[in-house]
Nucleic acid binder design. Structure first.
Length: 222
DNA sequence: GCGACAG
DNA sequence: ATCTTGTCGC
């Protein structure tokens, strides 16, 4: 796939934060996704093995979730894990994977946050600028923000609020399971992002595209 | 200063 | 994320 907004990755943490503050002004997080028009959806995930990072992007049909393309990429892990700077750790290997992608998915689901981030530019938002396609952040645990208790039933959701701003939703994708934290990455909005993720979770807590990417990246379920 | 902290 | 078997619960 053609990538946009590319930039060097060899930055210090302070430089990375400065870059995020620049890039966040480009992020569009109030645009509804036309779910009815989706034909292909991609799941993105990265696993780390001894200094080496492996990325996997699995493209599947929507609805139906039949895999149509899988790309893998490996590279040395270039940056430590620092909360708030995940994209600088996983970005390089993802760039390599995206370049190998033949198909052009209508939406990308990421393992991590979109705008539900201290500077409103988590990995899904950052990579969304590169892809110039709708992206959604799907976190398993919270990075920032608070939410009120939500019903135990699948489909229940509660606004995720940080510093007075609604940045996403806590969404129960499975009854009696911990909620997922959904936020727009780029070219998406909170309501349609949540609706789509729920539609992508017919059986497990993790949305289907991300489960597939997780497996392809070389891991087992959890 | 203290606590929190995606993967 | 990763180190790791069996086990408790819906």
């Amino acid at each position: 796939m053609q990538l946009h907004h590319r930039h060097p990755w060899n930055l210090t943490p302070a430089e990375a934060i400065a870059l995020q503050k620049e890039l966040r002004t480009e992020v569009v997080s109030n645009r509804p996704i036309d779910i009815e028009a989706i034909g292909l959806i991609a799941g993105v995930d990265v696993s780390v093995k001894n200094e080496q990072s492996q990325a996997a992007v699995v493209v599947m049909t929507y609805p139906g979730f039949l895999p149509v393309e899988t790309v893998l990429a490996q590279r040395p892990t270039p940056f430590p894990y620092i909360p708030g700077l995940l994209s600088f750790r996983e970005g390089p290997v993802l760039e390599e994977a995206f370049e190998k992608l033949k198909s052009v998915p209508d939406v990308f689901l990421f393992d991590g946050m979109g705008i539900a981030h201290p500077r409103r530019i988590g990995i899904a938002s950052h990579m969304g600028l590169w892809l110039d396609r709708p992206t959604i952040g799907c976190g398993k645990t919270l990075l920032c923000g608070r939410y009120k208790d939500l019903a135990e039933e699948k489909g229940a959701m509660a606004p995720l609020v940080d510093k007075g701003e609604t940045i996403g939703v806590a969404l129960r994708t499975r009854t009696a399971r911990n909620p997922m934290f959904i936020s727009p990455g780029h070219l998406a909005d909170i309501a349609t992002a949540a609706a789509l993720v729920l539609a992508c979770s017919p059986k497990y807590r993790l949305p289907e595209p991300i489960r597939m990417a997780h497996n392809a990246a070389g891991q087992f379920s959890s």
